[in-house]
Amino acid sequence: GSPGIQSFLPPGWEMRIAPNGRPFFIDHNTKTTTWEDPRLK
C-alpha cells in the first residue's frame, strides 16, 4: 500500500476531514487548526 498523506505532514500535525468534505489541518504543537496545508508554506 502507499503511505498515507499523514506521513508527509510536519511533526505534531494531523489532517482531518471536515463535515463538508474539506480537509483541514490540526497543529497539536500550538493547539490550532487551519485550512492551509502546512507543507505549502
Score class of each variant (00 low, 15 high):
Phe25Pro: 03
Ile26Thr: 06
Pro10His: 03
Pro23Asp: 07
Glu14Thr: 07
Gly21Lys: 06
Ser2Leu: 13
Arg16Thr: 06
Arg16Val: 12
Phe8Thr: 15
Leu9Thr: 01
Gly4Phe: 04
Gly4His: 12
Trp13Ala: 00
Pro3His: 13
Thr34His: 11
Leu40Pro: 09
Ile17Asp: 02
Pro38Trp: 00
Asp37Ile: 01
Asn20Tyr: 01
Leu40Asp: 12
Ile26Lys: 03
Gly12Lys: 04
Asn29Thr: 10
Asn20Thr: 07
Arg22Glu: 14
Trp35Leu: 08
Ser7Ala: 14
Leu9Trp: 05
Phe25Leu: 01
Asp27Trp: 02
Pro10Trp: 05
Phe24Tyr: 15
Ser7Thr: 12
Pro38His: 01
Phe8Gln: 15
Phe8Pro: 15
Arg39His: 05
Asn29His: 08
Lys31His: 14
Leu40Lys: 10
Asp37Lys: 02
Phe8Trp: 14
Phe24Thr: 08
Glu14Leu: 02
Ile26Asn: 01
Met15Asp: 00
Asp37Trp: 04
Thr33Tyr: 12
Thr30Trp: 03
Ala18Thr: 08
Arg22Trp: 11
His28Phe: 08
Ile26Arg: 02
Asp37Tyr: 03
Ile26Pro: 02
Phe24Asp: 04
Pro11Val: 07
Trp13Arg: 00
Ser7Glu: 15
Ile26Asp: 02
Thr34Gln: 10
Gln6Ser: 14
Pro38Cys: 02
Ala18Phe: 05
Gly12Ser: 03
Gly21Val: 00
Ile5His: 13
Glu14Asp: 05
Asn20Pro: 02
Gly1Glu: 12
Trp13Thr: 00
Gly1Tyr: 12
Gly12Asp: 03
Leu9Ser: 01
Gly1Asn: 13
Asp27Asn: 11
Pro3Glu: 15
Glu36Ile: 11
Thr34Ser: 09
Gly21Arg: 03
Thr34Ile: 06
Met15Gln: 07
Arg16Ala: 09
Ile17Trp: 11
Arg39Pro: 02
Pro10Ala: 04
Pro38Phe: 00
Asp27Met: 01
Gln6Leu: 07
Gly1Gln: 13
Ser7Cys: 14
Lys31Tyr: 07
Thr32Gln: 09
Arg39Trp: 06
Leu9His: 01
Gln6Arg: 10
Pro38Val: 03
Arg22Ala: 08
Glu36Pro: 01
Ser2Ala: 13
Asn29Pro: 02
Arg16Trp: 05
Phe25Thr: 00
Arg22Asn: 09
Pro11Met: 08
Asn29Tyr: 09
Thr32Arg: 10
Pro11Gly: 07
Gly1Met: 11
Ala18Ile: 02
Leu40Val: 12
Thr33Ser: 10
Ile17Glu: 05
Thr32Asp: 05
Phe24Lys: 07
Ser7Val: 11
Pro10Lys: 06
Gly21Asp: 04
Pro23Gly: 05
Ser2Val: 11
Thr33Met: 15
Gly1Ala: 13
Asn20Ile: 02
Gly21Trp: 00
